[in-house]
Simulated assay, not measured.
Amino acid sequence: MKEPMRDIKKSLDATVFKDSQFSAKHKHAVFQKIHKRKTIYVLPTLVSGLLLTVAVSAGIYFATERIGGESPAALVPNHPVTTEIPPPQGEGGTETVPLYEAKEDAEVSMKDAETAYALCVDALTDYYNAIWNGTEIDVGKFIGNENLQQYLETKIQYESKKFGTMDSKVKQLEIGDWEVTFTNDEKGGYLYLEVPVSIRKHDGGGYGEGTEFFVRNIDGKLTIVDWYTGGKDTYDYLVRGYEQKIGNPNVWNDHDWVKKFKSGTGLYDFEQQVYDRFQLTHDANELIGLEPISIAKLYAYASYQQDFETAYALYTDREEHILWSEEEDEQIPLVDRGTPEQVLETYKGLESGSFIQTSDYEGYIKFYPNGEQHVESGFSMIKNEEGIWQVAFLPVQ
């Protein structure tokens, strides 16, 4: 070990983590009648590479010799860095395509930590730029597994629909202290990176999310093999669960795991996941983070499946808006509920509708079941005391 690096190592070691007379049928008929933070800057490849090298090389030098098993976590760097969100393509500048080459042909080690970090930072930059600013993202630059690519593309579509219509765009990312850990296995090992990111917008607002990555060496190139974004209103929270912590770098090669995200029911993958959990518990907390249209789709799906208990559980729990009890709902004859085919006809086009909020806790989804703009339907929604959107009784009139 050269003397300068030995001194740096010593320095680091020393300084170095929720009317009884009427039958239910009568009530139902009556109600139907009356209710209608490191900012990421797009620098030239040479300069950005130099900055990354200076920021991390000293912190990981002493862990670069692989001896098998899991190495100690390395905090790199120990101070936040700021990165500007780049302009969309065509607004100036040329796009560079980093190779993210591994140090070895078929293995990964702590020697690859700074390149893996650059890979994750670039992926985060393109991701937040896509969902907030509407730019295109080539997920294949960062991810080789087709299953994870498809999942991430759906995730971007969901987040983009939620954020992309807002006026305030993202200006920069700030990344604070991040950790990287190496684990050896039969596939050449993998790196785990925990990267806290703060998103700063042009209007001065912002928010923070924790992100986790697994990175492998695939044919000499560092590749993300799993990616989880924490936060109770994120897509990963809705689909994979809030307590989900990535722990298996091979998970997207697992057929049983992957098929959970392919519903084939008319629901998006994440909506099916929420429906499956909500069906078991009828806990409104499972709906946290869902947009009104997604919750309306769950109600339509439950009605189509004639899962009337789940459909009732999706109704508003605001006392002044409850029209009949669950016990009364159970007494409604099947013939009065409509056939699955009638349900499909009633809610056709719901997923393409637009939500219009009319008060602090009320709104409706405007949609066109016949595909004709002059034949409009509305699906009423009510937000409960906890801020969760729920279905109004007799939502479509």
Rank of each mutant, 00 (worst) to 15 (best):
D167P: 04
Y275Q: 05
Y207K: 15
G264Q: 07
K221G: 07
W227F: 14
P249L: 02
K262W: 05
E194H: 06
D226M: 06
Q272T: 06
D283P: 03
P292Q: 14
E174R: 14
P292A: 14
Q273Y: 10
T281Y: 08
D203P: 08
V274G: 06
G208D: 15
K201I: 07
T181K: 11
N184D: 12
F163R: 12
I156M: 07
I218T: 11
T181M: 08
T154Y: 11
K262I: 11
F182M: 10
D283R: 06
G266M: 08
K201Y: 13
L222G: 03
I199D: 02
T223Y: 04
P249M: 00
L280D: 01
F278A: 09
D226F: 01
L267N: 09
G188L: 05
I224H: 01
T211H: 13
R277P: 03
V215F: 05
I156F: 09
E212G: 00
G206V: 09
T223M: 11
F261C: 05
K169G: 13
K245T: 06
Q157Y: 13
K259Q: 11
Y192H: 03
L222M: 04
F261R: 06
R200F: 14
E212K: 03
G208H: 14
G189Q: 04
Y235F: 15
V195C: 05
G206K: 08
R240A: 08
E186L: 10
D203R: 09
W252S: 02
I218S: 06
Q272I: 03
Y242D: 04
K232S: 15
K162N: 12
S263K: 08
K262F: 12
G266H: 11
W178P: 08
G241S: 00
K169S: 10
V225L: 01
L290Y: 08
G189C: 04
I175T: 09
F213M: 01
Y268M: 13
V258I: 13
G205V: 06
T211W: 00
Y275V: 11
K171P: 05
K161N: 15
F270P: 06
M166T: 11
D283K: 12
